[in-house]
Amino acid sequence: MARHLDSVIGQAVHLVYLPNTKGRAITDADVDRLCETISRNFPSATVQHAEAIFDGSRRPILLARIRTDSTDAVVALAQRLCLAFDQRFVGIEVGGRYIRVYADDTG
């Protein structure tokens, strides 16, 4: 039954990792900015606080789950998030694979 459901209904869910490469505190204003940026192109998303290890240090990050068939739109969002949050990169998970997206990625 689960295999049948996977093949006939639903949309892909993409995970977006806002990595907090500078290791600063995550504020309510950061969450608001993330939600506002996402809402410009997607009707809904789930945003979560999380902890990550990056460059050997534990730091707070934000995660967003976005339901869409457009991977290109998620990549474009990740590029905008790099600029909006002054990040070297933003991670996305597509089909179970992690990809780093940089603000200047062109292809």
Rank of each mutant, 00 (worst) to 15 (best):
T27H: 10
E36V: 01
Y98I: 12
I38G: 05
Q48A: 14
P43D: 05
G96Q: 08
D55E: 15
V16L: 04
A73Y: 02
R33L: 15
A103D: 07
V31R: 13
G56H: 08
Y17A: 05
P60K: 15
E51V: 15
F89R: 07
P19G: 04
H14T: 01
P19W: 00
S57P: 06
D6F: 05
R59M: 11
N41M: 00
I26E: 02
E36I: 06
A25Y: 01
D69T: 12
Q79Y: 00
I99P: 05
D30Q: 14
V47S: 10
V75H: 00
F42E: 08
V13F: 00
Q48R: 14
D28Y: 04
A78I: 06
Q11P: 09
L62F: 03
A84V: 13
A45R: 02
D72S: 14
V31H: 02
Y102F: 09
L62E: 00
A50Q: 09
V75S: 03
F89Y: 06
D55N: 15
L63D: 03
D6L: 13
T46N: 14
V16Y: 01
P19F: 02
R33W: 02
D55V: 14
D32M: 12
Q11V: 04
F54T: 11
Y98T: 06
D86K: 13
T37R: 13
G96R: 12
T106N: 10
N20M: 04
I38K: 05
G107L: 08
E93P: 11
I38L: 04
N20H: 02
S7P: 09
L34I: 03
V101G: 04
I9D: 01
A64R: 00
V8E: 03
G10Y: 01
K22S: 08
T106V: 15
S7F: 04
L34V: 06
F42T: 02
C35Y: 00
G56V: 12
L77R: 06
V8Q: 06
T46Y: 03
E36D: 15
V90T: 12
R3Y: 03
A2L: 11
T46R: 15
